[in-house]
Write a protein that binds this DNA or RNA. Sequence first.
RNA 1: GGCGGAGUAGCCAAGUGGUAAGGCAAUGGUUUGCAAAACCGUCAUUCGAGGGUUCGAUUCCCUCCUCCGCCUCCA
Length: 466
Amino acid sequence: MRLFDTLSRSERELRPIDGSSFRFYCCGPTVYGPAHIGNFRTFVIQDVLRRTLETGGTRTLHVRNITDVDDKTIRDSQAAGRSLTDFTADWTGKFHADCEKLGLLPPHIEPSAVAHIPQQITMIETLVEKGNAYASDDGSVYFRIASFPGYGRLSRLDARELDLGKTQNARATSDEYEKDSLSDFVLWKARRPEDGENFWPSPWGEGRPGWHLECSAMIQEYLGPSFDLHSGGVDLVFPHHENEIAQSQCACGGHFAAHWFHITHLLVDGGKMSKSLGNLYTLEDLAAKGHSAMEVRYVLIGAHYRKPLNFTLDSLHGAREALAKLAKGARALAARIGPEARLVSADFGPFQAAWDSLTHDLNTPAALGGIFTGLRKAAPLSGADAAAALAGLNRLLRALGLVLPEEAAADSGEIPTEVQALAETRWQARLAKNWAEADALRARLAEHGWAMKDGKDAYTLEPLGA
RNA sequence: GGCGGAGUAGCCAAGUGGUAAGGCAAUGGUUUGCAAAACCGUCAUUCGAGGGUUCGAUUCCCUCCUCCGCCUCCA
């Protein structure tokens, strides 16, 4: 498949450099609170990339880290009066639960920063030995940007711009750190009182690793000096990924990531998502409004990953209807297969255009459009042709990670007896063609929150607003 | 200020130098006691604004407006 690469600014074919499996790394969550839908846009798109590769027959090795030590995790665990370990374990669990609801495949390897302190120290030692890093008097260690000529290539910042940018903040940081250059970033942070019990011994004294370093160290541990793809939200391009490149290429040699895959941020109601505006949604927030995680997933893949996505509650409603329509279409297709043996399709049949969209820079919205169009094209098919089309459709849905809703099961057990009694009375009134009473009873059912729908020989009851 | 991205119907959103996918909503019809559901239709002479290049531009160029991201450890 072809995918846009941030570094070369061009679309490139994805091919595993080791010839067997496609090995990629995704910057994972910082576990100090619930992830929001903005975070999940990135993780869902990464999941679609993996699923698309696998659907296309490529084996993958997916590594995604957990950041469980940094300023925020330390600050919030202390505010909660809990140990860092307990605090981050809880939020990691919550993250995993959300991922499962969204249908995200678990990474093959999910390393935590705290579990890889020795590897991080080793990498810093290497950088110091090679002259790419230096210790300051307070026991912190910094990366010397001047020692890496390639710095700024990914984000297209040249040295002059970097210095200008940092100058504005010189006063804020110069009292705290002794850096040779204001642009230099920290690899090891000397222990400070506000760190509490969260520090580790090192050759430079007690402290903790800097954020940028953890990814480099874990990538070296699990993927080595060169691997296929590195991914994250656009905000990570600078400085996080720029710093990773500098650290890893200096310490390990190799070309580091062959491909850079960045996902654009989403907007909410046309603007920035923020807590103060009250539009920073978590899965839990949306579930409380009656929206399933699969509906959220549908919305998140409803725009191309390099374009802003405008998330609205209205689009969630649209997602529900669209998913229902897909499910209906799939059921209709399955119903036309008949008794013939189910065939495994070699291609995507009527859904070929949808698959082509997906493999051309992961155009998920065009793929969704292609599915609806394919369903229309498949309408006249029956028997073995329908079976092949359905197989193609299912492969596509698997690549997108969409799980279609089942047909609503009539679960009479959950209907209050009072409501059932009203419904039965109304049914009798209706059979007696007593329309006035029937309508009045339907209004009363509505007051109880239920909608009664008349069929030919029976009726169904559904909760209103479902 | 520097760098990068975006503005397509009421909403979400593809796409292209050759005359605008798809979904939601809306709306007409069939059906229904009426509804709902289902099924069959309709729904952008137009792509932020103004210029330019071209036989032809939404697509390329210029200017302007608006929004978003990064420029201190936010996906």
